[in-house]
Design a protein around this nucleic acid. Structure first.
Lengths: 263, 263
DNA sequence: TAGATTGTTAATCGATTAACAATC
DNA sequence: TAGATTGTTAATCGATTAACAATC
């Protein structure tokens, strides 16, 4: 969209489906690994296996970016790394601030996966005055009072919130007011933001709860009927012969598990 | 479902869509907050707003669980908290082990959101002998050698991997061999597991990359044409008047942002 | 040319949402 | 009863996938 394209033809450019965007980093990681092993080309089948997805899906995903493959040959690894990086905006520098330098904030500051992909930790910010000046991952923590100045001086557009839930919305408001337009939220709260601001949420507890749901299904399958809360089901683990499971990231299991016993 | 409701073409029981399962924890959190404020009932409209979703979607989600609302009134908060908790399997105890007690592992061990929802950190495991016995979040770290015994003795079926990428698959294999059937993976690797084992992945770097993609779009919109990699776009943030954005967790933005300037 | 593999089509499946009849 | 709100329908949209023609 961006530019007002009229008809259909002309690069569908900005029409990349969200589901595809979410998989590009996965492909990029697999490609980077191949690149490090100096593998020159890769087929959709091989790359899909490495990324844990269906090869038809991968080819469809790539078709949104353009025709970067060669029929009968495959994809040039280096070229594809570049194209995907560019598409994701990783060929430019993204200064990022992390707010809330507790255990999680420190873990994020130390996370190596950022720097290698265009992200640069521009500042660490915490509300605790005692933290000010203390270096974490080699970067001195700054006090929340400096938030606005830091955002402006560094041209930060991406903020990471790793504060307690109670402080998250307030921090979010300040980040947005200072010019941040993308937020990665680790606090267990729903953030309210104005239009034009993107929020992505990572919630540890929610992921575990989803696992528990499926785990309960497995336990119910082999043991008693599901009506009776088998009480000890949490500890009932054995190798259930379920079905699916291939990729990672999104395990869309369940569906309808065949009952082991009649009703 | 639970009890075998007869009519209604055999309980659609296990037919809860994955997308719905993923939202149940969100509803549960909002309901818990209402419960703490002693709010007795809530309408789909109010609850949906609190959870950051569309109210029609919420009602449809709840319809998979059963008819727990009252027309003209709304939903009983306490009752719904119980029903969702039960559906997610949170009314039982889930012993969990965390493997890899670095910054992230420690953050997870300290995370309060677990205990309150049926999850109990049964053990912290690390490969570094120097860590053994050292308490983290009040729990002494144990050495990887003990992994199998810990899993078995505690009946652990859920494992959290917070190791470096290089160690993740090996740890995963040992967890699975010892009886774990659900894994929450924080290591940036695609894990291979046998059928019947669920893996969910949390990837900090991927989330940031998705944000960067959308951020780049915003920058491209207000500035030059999209073909030219505007080089400094990373620092170009202003308040673009986009559209959508309401919930959290999944911001499926983009789509087609109205252009600010003509082509 | 023969073999391999992409890029695309089309069918299918699942998720979202507005609308409204049912009913408290 | 009148007003409110659920539970469900049905239309729509988006994502997945097998299959295969195009083409290296």
């Amino acid at each position: 969209m961006a530019t007002g394209r009229t008809h259909r033809p002309a690069t569908r450019s900005r029409g990349i489906p969200e589901a595809t965007v979410a998989r590009l980093p996965l492909y990029l990681r697999a490609l980077t690994a191949l690149s490090e092993r100096s593998v020159p080309t890769v087929s959709s089948e091989e790359l899909a296996a490495a990324a844990g997805v269906n090869s038809a899906k991968l080819r469809k995903d790539f078709s949104y970016l353009g025709s970067y493959g060669t029929r009968g040959v495959g994809y040039d690894v280096e070229y594809l790394v570049y194209q995907i990086s560019r598409e994701l905006g990783l060929t430019q520098d993204w200064p990022v601030v992390i707010v809330g330098i507790g255990n999680l904030g420190a873990a994020l500051a130390n996370y190596g996966g950022f720097a290698s992909r265009g992200f640069r930790v521009a500042a660490l910010i915490d509300a605790d005055p005692a933290m000010a000046g203390k270096p974490v991952a080699g970067i001195p923590v700054q006090h929340t009072d400096e938030l606005e100045a830091i955002i402006r001086d560094n041209g930060v557009s991406i903020g990471v919130i790793a504060t307690p839930a109670g402080a998250a919305q307030q921090v979010c408001d300040r980040l947005v007011a200072a010019g941040v337009t993308s937020i990665l939220n680790f606090a267990p709260t729903v953030l309210t933001v104005p239009d034009g601001v993107d929020v992505r949420k990572v919630d540890l507890s929610i992921e575990l709860q989803i696992l528990a749901f499926h785990e309960q299904r497995k336990a119910g399958e082999e043991a008693a009927a599901d009506g009776a809360p088998a009480q000890a089901a949490g500890t009932t683990n054995s190798a259930v012969a379920a079905k699916r499971q291939d990729s990672a990231t999104d395990q869309g299991p369940d569906g309808d598990v065949p009952a082991v016993m009649p009703a």
